[in-house]
Design a binder for these strands. Structure first.
Lengths: 215, 215
DNA sequence: CAAGCAGTTGATTGATCATTCAATCATGTC
DNA sequence: GACATGATTGAATGATCAATCAACTGCTTG
């Protein structure tokens, strides 16, 4: 009912998306995609002129999936905007656990595998990252009362993405949630400190914002 | 003088290391390694029985390179242990800039590309991460006066690695230092907050260490 | 000088890679 | 029912992949 008749194109995209996530882009052969999607090569090349074009299609699919497959679940898991940030991180934590550390963030995986000779794919990976951080940013803005006016919420949103990706990478390598939980715990402590600073920002004892590099 | 006759094995390892970093593991063909190292296939397979074994050799090489090629430079760039942490991050920043965002952290790249069917490689990637974090941990311990006793310096060291890897990934995707600098700035603010909390830890107004998940 | 052996040569293997394309099928239009 | 168009079939292409191996070289040791 909800998915009455997936198009051939959709079946190719979904299979490629899954295999790129499971095995990586280079490690996934076209023949495997054809077999698992139950499609012949001519059909694939009818819709996607090359493997690179297929990757672009997958990255566009991920842009569409961000809200329904990721962010909606985080928003459902918590109502407080700050708690939504950590609910989001917890979604990725659950993914690690359930898939036995075999797969990390699909965009992160592609980000490090896709070389510079695929500029369009690189651009779409960047767009995925920007959209992800923009949702976090919107949550932070909802909780603007818990940040001091000097706190750069755009930077903090990028920082949350940084922590998620770095924590996923370490957890996969260690096949353990320890580094992931450690990173999230430290991020939580930072958020607590920011909130504390916001509550006492009229005083003189706020931590100095020194060492901020020129950008 | 300093490198007076690299052995064939060393030449293979160094070429493979460079190409894996530039292009990734799967994207690098044996034939390319052979050409650029000026070696014939039999010689390569005399030392390394398979491409996977070559990857293991490269990862062991990286373990050896950590101190002389990375950490020594960070220690030379700053004497204060906390500043060494940020000097280390600045080394990676320089790498991004210098190489036009084409290459990130070689270990991080491999961490996301190497699948679970190469358990020995995965273990060595984890070892590289652990050694990296252990050096950071040793610096944090040197500056233990700037952390409150409750601050978990082991977790913080893992957190620094998380931030480095996540920031490198985002910077590469964006082809911009903005997300990298944003992440480092936020990490610096966290360190400042930790230091501030340590200086005032006798008071009642320290941020609550709530929401720490059980591990 | 003989024997042994680590190291090297380089052609060759079969498998798999991404991609092509002429033929065929399904569907809607005039 | 003729025609056009989009979609599908599936065998075939040449390139490249990792890996093999018998022959050969140069050095060391007795």
């Amino acid at each position: 009912m909800s998915t009455p008749d997936p198009t051939t194109r959709d079946r190719i995209l979904e299979t490629a998306r899954r295999l790129f996530h499971e095995q990586g882009f280079h490690a996934t052969g076209i023949s495997t995609i054809l077999r698992e999607a139950d499609v012949h090569s001519g059909s694939l090349y009818h819709f996607f002129p090359s493997k690179d074009a297929l990757l672009i299609g997958v990255l566009e699919l991920y842009i569409q999936l961000l809200r329904p497959a990721v962010m909606d679940h985080a928003e459902q898991a918590a109502t407080d905007p700050i708690e939504r940030v950590f609910a989001l991180l917890n979604l990725y934590r659950s993914g690690l656990e359930h898939l036995d550390f075999k797969m990390g963030c699909p965009i992160g995986n592609l980000a490090l595998e896709v070389a510079d000779d695929q500029p369009e794919a690189r651009r779409l990976i960047d767009q995925n990252f920007r959209n992800w951080a923009a949702v976090v940013r919107s949550w932070l803005d909802e909780a603007s009362d818990r940040f001091s006016p000097e706190a750069d919420r755009e930077q903090i949103a990028l920082f949350v993405l940084t922590v998620m990706e770095g924590a996923m990478m370490q957890a996969r390598a260690a096949r353990s949630l320890v580094p992931f939980d450690a990173s999230v715990t430290q991020l939580r402590a930072y958020f607590d400190a920011l909130s504390f600073a916001a509550r006492t920002n009229a005083h003189a004892h706020t931590p100095p914002a020194s060492h901020t590099p020129e950008i």
